[in-house]
């Protein structure tokens, strides 16, 4: 042991160890606290940054050359992560849209406390471009029966024509044979709404006819259900008059534009009951 301590390289090593530990402690302070605000840290910072960059670049090059599989795996993993995130994002977007639609329906339902509704989603559509029939995911188990009114916050959709245990088919306002009794909100004149009005192959709206000869119908008038016939509760919004045709035989015809986009309809309310006392 004595020989060891007499060994000059060992003494030099010992001194070097002490000095190096001091140096390490100094650089540690330089990184962590105010003492490091001194000259050393400032001078070392760009060098340190450069060395780090060199290390990353050189190391990355050799990994790319000698271990491409690791990079491929990482690439694959990242790709999967991106796909997963994209799917989550799409799902979130879809959920937000659904939330907005249902909120709109809920607001409508709350604004009409005299009616009882069943909310349903569209699960089927006719291939007919006019979309005269849609299928909803609510049926007799939810209390749905034939001829019940189907509406949205944007207006009347149609009437239930067929009911299954958990589905129902709805004849929409686009159906040629669909007729509902309506009234002009401003004048209270009643008429019959039904049948599509086309011009040059383009559907402009539905026809409003059987209006009294003295009826003062104007463009922009709001059309609501009259309640006659009992199928549709009174006062439901249907659409707006976009054109008036004076037939000259004591009656008026008008074209009513509906706000509902039947091609993109996704959710609807089925009116399963009306409390007349409140209404």
């Amino acid at each position: 042991m004595r020989k060891l301590w007499k060994n000059r390289p060992m003494w030099i090593a010992l001194i070097a160890i002490v000095l190096l530990i001091v140096l390490a402690a100094f650089t540690a302070n330089g990184r962590n606290d105010a003492a490091g605000d001194g000259l050393f840290r400032n001078a070392a910072a760009p060098v340190s940054g450069f060395l780090h960059t060199v290390q990353q670049e050189v190391g990355g090059f050799f990994v790319r050359v000698f271990a491409p599989s690791a990079l491929q795996e990482e690439n694959e993993r990242l790709r999967e992560t991106v796909l997963e995130q994209q799917m989550k994002l799409a799902l979130l977007d879809e959920t937000e849209k659904e939330n907005a639609r249902l909120s709109e329906l809920l607001n409508f339902a709350q604004a009409n406390p005299n009616m009882r509704f069943v909310t349903a989603s569209v699960i089927g559509r006719d291939s007919n471009p006019y979309i005269d029939t849609i299928t909803l995911n609510a049926g007799s188990r939810s209390g749905v029966t034939e001829k019940m009114a189907v509406i949205t916050a944007d207006g009347v959709v149609g009437r239930v024509s067929e009911v299954g245990p958990n589905w129902c088919r709805v004849k929409t306002m686009c159906d040629e044979k669909m007729r509902i009794s309506v009234m002009v909100q401003r004048t209270r004149d009643e008429g019959m709404l039904g049948g599509l009005y086309e011009e040059g192959g383009e559907i402009l709206g539905t026809l409003l006819y059987y209006l009294p000869g003295k009826a003062d119908v104007r463009v922009g008038d709001v059309i609501r259900t009259s309640g006659i016939g009992g199928f549709f509760p009174k006062g439901l919004y249907v659409g707006t008059v976009i054109a008036v045709n004076d037939g000259g035989k004591g009656t008026h015809d008008a074209i009513v534009s509906m706000d509902i986009d039947f091609l993109h309809l996704e959710d609807a309310l089925i009116v399963v009951g009306v409390d007349e006392a409140i209404g």
Binding site: A16, L19, L20, I21, L23, A24, T27, A28, R31, Q55
Partner: peptide
């Protein structure tokens, strides 16, 4: 690649 200069050497 080390944060403390001299530690590995020591």
């Amino acid at each position: 690649c080390n944060p403390y200069l001299g530690l590995s050497a020591a």
